[in-house]
């Protein structure tokens, strides 16, 4: 269990979630149209994460690394292939069932 002081950088999500979204709302004179807090938090977290990581290894790999990109693509393809196989199986099975019950066909 962690009891964190909320200013630690690890709780960036907590800070943004509350600071950007909560607190007393009394209309000031200036209308500030903040984007969706969820979206803002994601964007900022990604920036912080990549900056931290970049500092750690001393380069800006996150934008250009072809390995990471291709790996993501690979995963995607595999998922699609699997889904495709599953669907094929289902169709075959359905066709078999349909052939078995010829009298009920409306085609």
């Amino acid at each position: 269990m962690t009891i964190e002081h909320p200013t630690q950088s690890s709780s960036i999500v907590d800070v943004l979630e509350t600071v950007l979204d909560k607190g007393v709302v009394i209309a000031g004179d200036i209308r500030v149209g903040l984007a969706d807090v969820e979206l803002l938090t994601i964007k900022i977290r990604l920036i912080v994460a990549s900056v931290d990581k970049a500092k750690e290894i001393g380069m800006d790999w996150w934008e250009t690394d072809p390995y990471l990109n291709s790996k993501a693509a690979e995963q995607n393809t595999k998922q699609l292939e699997d889904e495709n196989k599953e669907l094929q199986k289902r169709i075959e099975q359905l066709e078999k069932n349909a052939n078995a019950g010829q009298s009920n066909r409306f085609v």
Partner: peptide, 8 residues
């Protein structure tokens, strides 16, 4: 605490 960017 006021909300972020409360300005007069």
């Amino acid at each position: 605490p006021m909300k972020f960017c409360t300005i007069y």
